[in-house]
Amino acid sequence: MKTVKRSIATITLATIMVVSVSCKDEKKGAEVTPIEKEMNDTKATSMSASEDVKAEAILSDYFNLKDALVADDNSKAKQSGLLLSKSLQSLDIANYDNKNELKDIIEDANEHAEHISESDIDHQREHFKILSKDLIDMVAVTGTKVTLYEQYCPMYDGGSAWLSTKEEVRNPYYGSQMLTCGKVQREIN
């Protein structure tokens, strides 16, 4: 008898749980739908536009990060680092050749982007150096639609490179301290 009572109690409890969960879902689903639809729409358009969209998104986040470092802006660099980490994680590697190399590059770059999202500016610049090397290598695999300039500062940490969309040098490793230190090392088309 005791067992029966207990199982009835269990079944009742389980039913209440299932019902309450499904109610919640239904409500949530109804609220979310219009936004979700909108998101799916944008996704569909961007996917059909070009397979390079994600690589371009990575570069665009990287340039925001670079600009924040040029401006000595620690908190903006943190935000950009976080966004960059997200776009790195969403790159669809299957679209490219050299998948293994690209996977290694993205994994490493992501680790540096994550660190940048939670460090002081000196550390951000240390990580930015390796991150830049990773992205220069990434571009060699993914290519680029816009002209990029690989720039180089011989003074920072035994010589450090970075990417820019402009030919004019704005140094992310020193910021206002030595804004124009560096040179264009290579043009990437």
Binding site: D104, I105, E107, D108, I130, D134
Partner: peptide, 15 residues
Amino acid sequence: YSNRRKVSKLRSIIK
């Protein structure tokens, strides 16, 4: 770890 990450890790260890 890939070689790329090994180098990254070693760099961080040193720093």
